[in-house]
């Protein structure tokens, strides 16, 4: 269970690894699914106070760097989140995740009659500014709350 530490933080800072901050409330569990299992600790905080968002989720992954594919998936469900790479207690890289314009092979199409769900074809989606994904093949659209559960993990 995550407790507020003596210095007022909800999660103890990590010495080395990756932190994902400013996640919309409710997305931390999806991020956990994307990050997958780890030999080291993964810590989540859900619905903690945030000056920027009101409330937010946090995910700290010790001793692990995420792949580009994992980062793209997190960007899909939480554009605007902040990804930090930590080395020796210092933030060595800070990136604000931006919604990708195109994603390949990261999620499946909502349309069961789509060619990507029937033949061995890698799904491709184009994402518009509102976060709606349009299938390159069958042209069906999915909103974020629909594709958040369709990410391939």
């Amino acid at each position: 269970m995550v407790k507020k530490t003596r210095d007022g933080l909800y999660i103890k800072p990590i010495e080395r690894g990756t932190t994902i901050d400013h996640l919309p409330v409710g997305t931390a569990l999806h991020v956990l699914k994307i990050v997958g299992s780890s030999d080291d600790a993964i810590t989540l905080a859900i619905g903690v106070p945030s000056r920027k968002l009101g409330k937010k989720d946090l995910v700290f992954v010790e001793n692990k760097l995420l792949s580009n594919e994992q980062i793209a998936k997190i960007a899909l469900i939480a554009p605007g989140a902040t990804l930090n790479i930590i080395e020796k207690n210092e933030v060595v890289l800070k990136t604000r995740l931006e919604m990708p314009k195109k994603v390949v092979g990261l999620m499946s199409c909502i349309n069961p009659k789509c060619i990507t769900n029937i033949e061995n074809v890698e799904p491709i989606f184009y994402i518009d500014d509102s976060g709606t994904a349009r299938c390159y093949y069958c042209e069906k659209t999915m909103k974020r709350e629909e594709y958040i559960n369709r990410l391939r993990v």
Partner: peptide, 23 residues
């Protein structure tokens, strides 16, 4: 199958005309 025409166009050396792909 929906999206079949786009796939066909991508793999075909020659032009493809979609005469209907599912709905």
């Amino acid at each position: 199958i929906e999206g079949a025409a786009r796939l066909a166009a991508d793999v075909s050396k020659r032009p493809v005309i979609n005469a209907g792909d599912g709905a």
